[in-house]
Design a binder for these strands. Structure first.
Length: 398
DNA sequence: AATGGACCTTGTGC
DNA sequence: AGCACAAGGTCCA
């Protein structure tokens, strides 16, 4: 293990205690106030105080057991940089530290009174830039499932199929398995035995698609070029540049990947910060706090799915997925105590009262009051104005 | 194209 | 204790 190092970082810019527990990553383990996880072939430990993020790193003795042994960055002259040296850069990428979170919270609070009300108790929540493949498999596991069980399943994947990186006490830490590692003949049966249920088949089929059917580097080609991945060489293509919409469509072709999982991968694994995964929580939030139509149907349609995302993108802007994660966390049962606790700093409740009289509150209420199922469907169609869409709109109204 | 069930298993609340 | 129900949904008929 290296010595502890530190990055100057306030708790409002990043709170690892919340960010690492809110259902984005399922692999971090807290041991005695330290968060531990294998990231890109190294065992990372984090702890935080009011002013600093402290970190240390341990590399496996046998570097070849790492999934990406050749991925360590090289200097321009070809000399390999000491491996530890890129860990700070890795953290900066993983937590997307280039974004000013306080400024973003201010912006979302200004355009959304509900965000302004909920966010003060949930500061420092960031969207993680995770490995695309890990994100894909993790959220295939997430379907119709609890966060605790998802974590359990992801842990089992690593233990049984991922390379061992190191130990903390008696606890073994593995990296996430490669797609190839999950394509074996007996994997599906084994995963069922391990309690994956019907997701076992999805995982194996998707692993086969990514490692055998899709071209090399396909998943990485879906990464937002403005938010590039870690240690991923972008392969220039003759195709038109990738968009969020196309990345989403491509992911939908995979087994076990529907619109919600595809959005999770877009947001947390591919750097598309406008992606808003609409799950049961976000649907509850949309209905309860944003006057979305009370649907009689338990499962909402594809049009409904997109209308919710479009609505939030309209309110929160191009980083809507980041704002969504704050309200999502505030809505989690495991954070219920935090949501209802009296805020420590005085003055916040005063701000909320003042906000009730503000211009944005009034206009937002007016906008929300008109929302109904019909309105939602129309709104969904409005961004485009081609012929196909307008025909669709007529159909809905008739 | 849209809608209703089935689906594995575990955690939670009564 | 034991049972119903929900869980960061997706697939298929």
């Amino acid at each position: 293990m290296s010595e502890w190092r530190k990055l100057p970082l306030s708790l409002t810019e990043l709170c690892i205690d919340t960010t690492l527990r809110c259902g984005q990553s399922f692999r971090w383990q807290k041991i005695d106030d330290e968060w531990n996880c294998v990231l890109h072939g190294r065992l990372l430990s984090l702890k935080q105080d009011e002013s600093f993020l402290h970190y240390r790193v341990a590399w496996p003795r046998n570097a070849s057991s790492s999934r990406k042994p050749t991925s360590s960055p090289k200097a321009k002259d070809g000399i390999e940089i000491k491996q530890e040296d890129d860990t700070e850069a890795l953290l900066g990428h993983y937590f997307s530290l280039k974004h000013d979170l306080t400024a973003l919270y201010d912006q979302w609070s200004e355009s959304d009174p509900n965000f302004k009300k909920k966010a003060p108790k949930f500061t420092g929540i960031r969207i993680l830039s995770q490995d695309a493949w890990e994100t894909l498999v993790s959220f295939i596991c997430s379907s119709n499932n609890h966060i605790s069980r998802i974590s359990q399943m992801v842990h089992k994947l690593c233990i049984h199929y991922g390379p061992l990186i190191g130990h903390i006490g008696d606890e073994a830490f593995h990296d996430f398995p490669s797609p190839q590692a999950l394509t074996g003949k007996s994997v599906e049966t084994h995963l069922r035995q391990l309690g994956f249920g019907y997701r076992a088949k999805y995982i194996v089929q998707t692993a086969m698609a990514v490692s055998m059917q899709k071209p090399e580097g396909w998943l990485e080609s879906l990464i937002n070029p403005d938010n590039p991945g870690w240690a991923v060489v972008s392969i220039p293509t003759e195709d038109e540049p990738i968009t969020y919409k196309r990345a989403h469509e491509e992911l939908l072709l995979l087994s076990g990947v529907g619109p919600k999982v595809a959005d999770c991968v877009c947001l947390m694994g591919l750097g598309w910060s406008e992606a808003v995964p609409v799950d049961t929580h976000v649907w509850q939030i949309a209905q309860r706090d944003y006057r979305f139509g009370k649907a009689k149907t338990k499962t909402f349609s594809k049009a409904m799915y997109h209308s919710v995302g479009d609505h939030f993108r309209q309110i929160w802007g191009p980083q809507a997925g980041w704002a969504q994660s704050v309200l999502f966390t505030a809505n989690l049962k495991s954070f219920a105590e935090q949501a209802t606790a009296n805020p420590e700093p005085v003055g916040i409740t005063v701000d909320i009262k003042q906000e009730a009289e503000s211009e944005s509150m009034v206009s937002a209420k007016k906008r929300q009051a008109t929302a109904s199922i019909e309105q939602i469907k129309v709104e969904y169609d409005e961004p485009s104005n081609n012929r196909r869409i307008s025909r669709k709109r007529r159909k809905i109204r008739s």
